[in-house]
Every structure is written in structure tokens, then in C-alpha cells.
Design a binder for these strands. Structure first.
Lengths: 144, 144
DNA sequence: TATAAATAGGATAAATTTGTCCGAAATAAA
DNA sequence: TTTATTTCGGACAAATTTATCCTATTTATA
């Protein structure tokens, strides 16, 4: 569904959020351990999240990655997915046609429409807050 | 959503079905032209569809690919997707966790569940017949 | 100011997916 | 039986994604 990079990005953002609630900045090393991902690759993905204003970074000693506590609730899954994979998952054609639309649909256009709309809606209405709180409460997990 | 190979496979199967209704066998060359795909790569994908009993092939002169007219209605999209991409799209974990289930869910487990179930249901209930008939009637298109 | 710690970012490598090429095997027709 | 045609299948190549490594830059603290 999503690229590996996007999976790591989502998990990283959730972990950073949980730590930011406690006023802690985290390093790519900690993040990679916590979400079971390759460290250097994760660091690259974090750069993309910083550029797209999903997380913020502080360079130098005592630096690290964090998310403004007051913004966690307003950050949606769609922002993270967009930052890394773009919007082709829920906007592109299911069969890869370049110009697929209502007037010129691919064979599965209508069939996919509902599913993609649901997916889009879900991504746009799922906040980092609820995902992070579920992790903190032990209801869900970032690895294994 | 699907791999390029899977997109080509779905379109190829639809085209073969339309031609099989008219008793015509088709070559990878014709298929590739009709669905706008790389010919040799398409031929490889056709082999996978043959192995998984989605289409049948006839070797030698006057050979080609075809689908038994009486089976077109009973072949579902899910068979094609399974033959090429496997079932990870609607069975694997949305965040790539190896052992994600109800008891040990990833943060998006429940959010994805409905969407993936819908996707699975759609793929299992969409027949090659309806897709091929829509192409024949000009309601949908395989390229551009 | 010097030092240590941390992210940024470019270069590179490995793995996977996508795509090509060519000879072997099969088959219909002359 | 020979020939032309066609799929099969293995080897190879290109492109993309995933992953690593190293240096530059930034910054808090001593």
C-alpha cells in the first residue's frame, strides 16, 4: 500500500509525538530502535518530514527531533503520506492510466473510486494525536 | 496501490477476454499495443497468468493467448492480483509489522481494516466479464 | 573559544522492480 | 518432414527504491 519509506515515516512521527508529550527530543538512533528501521535511511525520511513541517529538528548538542505539543492534534496522516509518497495512492488511476477521469475512465475506475475516497477520508481525519495516545496507553505497537 | 506488473496483468487479461469473446487468440505484441505496455515485460506477466490459470496459451503457429469463454465470468480481479502481487495488499499490515493482529495491532490497524476489507471484497466480486464488456461497449478504456 | 554532540546532505551501494534479448521448445501448415 | 510461427524461460540490463557512509554545518556547554 505505502512505500517502506512511508511506513517508517508514519511510525517515526508517532514515536516522536509520544516523546514530545514528555518534552523529550529524540535522535534517529532512538527512533530507529523504537520502530525497528534502518537508522541512516530513517534519518533521510526525517529530513523529508522536517521539510514538510511535520516534525521540527534542532541541530547541535542536545538537539534532536520533536513536534510542537500543540500541533500534534492537528497533524493528519495524510500530511505524512503526502510528504513521502505524494498523493498518487488516493488520487492516481488504479491501472496507471495517465488521463483517467469520469469522461474517460479505466475499467476499474468506479470500483476503485469508493475505496480511494474512503482511504483519503481516513488519512485526512486520523490525527497523530490519537495514534500517539494509543501507543502511550499500550493499545497499539510500533514494532513486532 | 498495485505494482506496474499487476496493472499490466489486469489490463492484459481484460483485453484477452474481449478478444476471446470473438474467438480470437492474441499475441503479446497485440496486447502490448492495446494496453500501452512494454511487450517483453508483458509477455513475462502473461506467463504468470498462465501458471495461475487465469489465461491459457497455445504454442506454435496460429497460437496465442486466450481465455475460455465460459470461464470469463467466473474469473475475479482477486485472482489476477494474487497471481502477480500476492495478497499482501489486503492481508498484510499497513505499517509493515510482521505480526500485526487484533491482539497486537499496529497504530493504524483498525483504521485500515475497513478499507482493506472493502478492497478485498471488491476484488473478489469484480469479474473479468463485467470489465471486458465495459471495454467492448466503449464505457471504459485500456489506454490514454 | 574550543569541544563535543547532533542534524543536513551528498555520494555511493545493495536490493528490488521493471524491462530487454535471445535461444529452446512446441505446433500448425505446406 | 521441413518451415514458419509462436510461447517458454533463462540471462541480462536499466531504473527505482531502499539502505549505508562520510563530511559539513550547527549549536549548547565548558
Amino acid at each position: 500500500m505505502f512505500s517502506k519509506a512511508c511506513e517508517y515515516g508514519i511510525k517515526a512521527a508517532i514515536f516522536i509525538a509520544t516523546q514530545s508529550y514528555e518534552g523529550k527530543r529524540v535522535s534517529p538512533k532512538e527512533i530507529a530502535q523504537e520502530i525497528d528501521s534502518p537508522q541512516a535511511f530513517t534519518a533521510k525520511i526525517l529530513q523529508a518530514l522536517v521539510k514538510n513541517d511535520v516534525v521540527s529538528s534542532v541541530k547541535g548538542a542536545y538537539g534532536g527531533f520533536e513536534i510542537d505539543r500543540n500541533q500534534i492534534a492537528s497533524i493528519k496522516l495524510s500530511q505524512i503520506v503526502n510528504a513521502i509518497d505524494g498523493d498518487t495512492i488516493y488520487n492516481g488511476c488504479g491501472l496507471g492510466l495517465h488521463a483517467c477521469d469520469e469522461a474517460h475512465p479505466c475499467p476499474v475506475h468506479d470500483k476503485f473510486k469508493a475505496i480511494r475516497t474512503d482511504l483519503k477520508h481516513m488519512l485526512e481525519n486520523t490525527s497523530l494525536e490519537e495514534l500517539a495516545l494509543n501507543i502511550k496507553s499500550g493499545e497499539s505497537f510500533l514494532k513486532i
